[in-house]
Write a protein that binds this DNA or RNA. Structure first.
Lengths: 135, 135
DNA sequence: CATACTGTAATAAAATATGTTACAAATGTA
DNA sequence: TACATTTGTAACATATTTTATTACAGTATG
């Protein structure tokens, strides 16, 4: 399922990478993205669970990169944000008495799996540092 | 933007390919997918606009493939359903005073364009006939 | 001990996707 | 001709998902 999670997460990480010595507050990050700070904190919670960032509570607290940005790839970010590439499914359970209906989702799954593989292969070649250097 | 359009469309086309000599009704197709016939007709309208199918109104009417299924690729279906691969954008306009905010969408666009290219290259290798033969 | 943060839950609002109803127009057939 | 069946399409309704807001307990700093 698609959403802005990947985009938000990569934006956060790019900012953190630009200020590697500071703890940035969610308020500050949200300001750069024009987004609600709570949403930023939610994505940061996810990054923390994956040990990509560390954060400090309390006054002057905030978040900071905890890994080497040249070693973190966009593929990992993609996976951490639970994203997958796909072109959807007919939402309803297709008719199991129809030979097409019975196997359609299975065949779409296989197709989407191949697509994910291709995309992953490509995202794996790009590090956070690479991405960040474009700015 | 993602939705089930691609999945619905490919299901319709697979069915039409299985019965190349019949005009299938939207009611029948919808039955195989367990979906509302109006939604099927909407996707068919799109297929008609691209001259992939032809349909006949009135009694005993329905829809029928109008192209050679060995020549129609999944890439074309992908493009006809207006789908693109992407990992989203932070929905709000990012802050233009921030060097990251100012360029983030542009850089994401470039990344997604590459991803689309990879996926298209792969989908181009698969014809409707190939897909249909899996059933 | 006041202040400025994080963390998180609960709720609300907005956007998007899906489903339904309705009906005019077309076409085959009794 | 009259009837039944089907497409085409618009208008509306519902459901689902995303995004935003509010609220507040807990934690560190000075």
């Amino acid at each position: 399922m698609l959403s802005g999670k990947f985009a938000i997460t990569i934006h956060i990480l790019t900012l953190l990478n630009k200020f590697p010595n500071d703890y940035l507050s969610s308020e500050y990050i949200a300001g750069s993205m024009n987004l609600n700070p709570v949403l930023v904190r939610k994505e940061i919670a996810n990054l923390k669970a994956h040990h990509i960032v560390e954060s400090k509570e309390g006054k002057n607290g905030g978040t900071k990169l905890a890994v080497d940005s040249s070693k973190l790839t966009l593929k990992e970010i993609f996976e951490m944000t639970f994203e997958t590439i796909g072109l959807g499914y007919a939402k309803n359970q297709p008719n199991p008495d129809c030979p097409v209906g019975k196997k359609i989702n299975q065949n779409l799954d296989a197709l989407y799996a191949e697509m994910n593989q291709k995309v992953s292969t490509q995202l794996e070649k790009i590090s956070l540092e690479d991405f960040s250097n474009q700015f």
